[in-house]
Design a protein around this nucleic acid. Structure first.
Length: 154
DNA sequence: GCCAACGTTGGC
DNA sequence: GCCAACGTTGGC
């Protein structure tokens, strides 16, 4: 079982939106970066992921979810009306994938990016490396534990 | 709203 | 295959 971190802008799709879905499960759509896509392809059912809110007042980790379905084609790429439309992704050769994720819980409080930056054990997390813009990234078990320990502080 | 950093595109 | 231009990400 592996650990991941997945970013979403809460104005577009928040952890509350995920929790409100039927079965608290939703496709994770719209990833249009090859490295992030490849990480999604490596996900297995039962893997755990941190839900991260980006591009908002207090960016940070807000909850925990799990992988409920392994990667399959992201059909929003085929839809000209979708904001995620990519004409280069063809039905016979899908370029982009999605996974399904299921809500597990909110953190008891947001673990902010500022705190994560200050935590020495999290210095190697891609999230805090200079200029990194990956929206899906692996998290080691040590890093996972460090974030959940931060949750319990203060 | 600004802007640094990055990935992608396309001309050559 | 290089690289300048461009669009996007995302923190601040």
């Amino acid at each position: 079982m592996r650990y991941w971190l997945m970013k979403s802008e809460p104005d577009v799709y928040s952890i509350d939106d995920l929790a409100a879905e039927p079965d608290a499960t939703s496709p994770w759509e719209g990833v249009r970066n090859y490295q992030a896509r490849n990480f999604m392809r490596a996900m297995r059912v039962g893997d755990l992921a941190l839900f991260y809110h980006s591009n908002c007042k207090t960016p940070g980790v807000v909850g925990v979810m799990k992988v409920a379905r392994e990667s399959y084609p992201d059909e929003t790429a085929f839809d000209p009306k979708s904001p995620y439309h990519d004409p280069k992704s063809r039905l016979d050769a899908p370029r982009w994938d999605r996974v399904d994720v299921q809500y597990i819980r909110h953190l008891s409080r947001i673990v902010s990016l500022a705190e994560i930056r200050q935590c020495p054990e999290l210095a190697d997390l891609p999230l805090v490396r200079r200029g990194n813009r990956l929206s899906v990234m692996p998290v080691t078990s040590q890093q996972w534990q460090a974030i959940l320990t931060l949750e319990q502080h203060r």
